[in-house]
């Protein structure tokens, strides 16, 4: 299989060129968030408070890693089930994110929003947290550290493997003959 090298922040031209099923190696900065972080971002917006970080142009990775051993950058760090973040798709995309990454299907609303905002959804390899951790070169908490494994991390990744699961036209790899 041919791998497509991608650098974050992902530019619009790259986003529109990627098609469902494309296998990518992502390098650069990515931001983590899962259930609780999404909920808190929503709360910040409802309360009219400014977020402690800027999400414009970012790739959001749905992960709650294991704690690192001494001398390691991060522990096991594979994707969690993305559909739990579906209710937050509009908020996150309106804040300017350009890509999401996790595992599994998304709902119809998210698919339409990806088209509207010209964004992309990557699936990476579920249950391969040890393998994927080797592609993470640095990690630091940038917000919500009280959430433990659900805190928001900035990760620098190198050749992080992912599949284009929903492209910016709304074509979905999981929507097959089942």
């Amino acid at each position: 299989m041919e791998w497509i090298k991608i650098q974050t922040p992902i530019d619009d031209e790259t986003i529109s060129s990627l098609k469902k099923g494309d296998l990518c190696l992502i390098s650069g900065r990515i931001i983590t968030a899962r259930d609780k972080a999404h909920e808190r971002i929503e709360d910040f917006l409802k309360e009219g408070k400014a977020l402690p970080f800027d999400l414009k142009g970012e790739l959001i990775y749905y992960v709650g890693p294991t704690p690192p051993k001494e001398g390691m950058v991060i522990g096991s760090a594979g994707p969690t089930t993305s559909s739990r973040m579906d209710p937050f798709s509009e908020i996150m995309l309106s804040l300017g994110i350009k890509a999401m990454m996790g595992k599994g299907r998304r709902d119809e609303t998210t698919k339409k929003l990806l088209v509207k905002y010209k964004a992309i959804y990557f699936a990476t390899f579920g249950g391969a947290g040890a393998y994927l951790s080797k592609r993470i070169k640095s990690s630091r908490i940038i917000a919500f550290d009280d959430l433990g494994p659900e805190a928001v991390y900035e990760l620098l990744v190198d050749d992080f493997p992912a599949v284009v699961a929903i492209d910016s036209k709304g074509d979905d790899i999981y929507e097959v003959k089942f």
Partner: peptide, 19 residues
């Protein structure tokens, strides 16, 4: 990748899955 994940996990003592 699933097979390689198992190798890395046992060799480097990194949990098989973050969950």
């Amino acid at each position: 990748i699933i097979l390689e994940n198992g190798e890395i996990a046992s060799r480097e003592e990194i949990p098989l899955c973050q969950d």
